[in-house]
């Protein structure tokens, strides 16, 4: 097991451990990941496609988790965000639904 990996999208060499001593699976700069672990197959996946960040989910303890989708096989995966992840992309993913609402949001001011 190496302690660095190279990002498949931006080529950044990333140290595997986050500042909080947790193993990371995505690049802190572009938040892309590699599809090596699969939920449905319960273990290793041989797809090895690039996983792009899709949206932000909030865990029950209030921490953020990143939903990734494989650009090759469309598999979804959930991973906690690290402290040094790119805050601009995280914030952009978080506000994206509110920037394009399917219905007018003015009504919620009167509730």
């Amino acid at each position: 097991m190496s302690d660095t990996f190279t990002c498949v999208r931006c080529g950044l060499v990333v140290i595997t451990l986050t500042p909080d001593d947790v193993r990371r699976n995505h690049c802190p700069s572009c938040l892309s990941s590699l599809h090596t672990l699969d939920h449905a197959a319960d273990g290793a996946s041989d797809c090895r496609g690039r996983m792009a960040p899709l949206s932000i989910a909030v865990r029950r303890d209030g921490s953020w988790a990143l939903v990734h989708r494989c650009t090759r096989c469309r598999e979804l995966d959930l991973h906690p965000t690290a402290a040094d992840d790119n805050q601009l992309i995280l914030m952009r993913l978080a506000v994206r639904p509110l920037a394009e609402p399917p219905f007018p949001l003015d009504v919620f001011g009167t509730l």
């Binding site: 939920h39 449905a40 899709l54 949206s55 932000i56 989910a57 909030v58 988790a65 939903v67 989708r69 979804l76 995966d77 959930l78 994206r96 639904p97 920037a99 394009e100 399917p102």
Partner: peptide, 28 residues
């Protein structure tokens, strides 16, 4: 658990299974 937006501006719901943790996407 979360909402995502497709390139054409449509909202997608991300569901997480409470039993096995699998994730699914569905349009609203």
């Amino acid at each position: 658990v979360s909402l995502s937006v497709r390139a054409d501006g449509e909202w997608l719901l991300v569901h997480e299974c409470t039993g096995c943790g699998a994730l699914k996407l569905n349009r609203i």
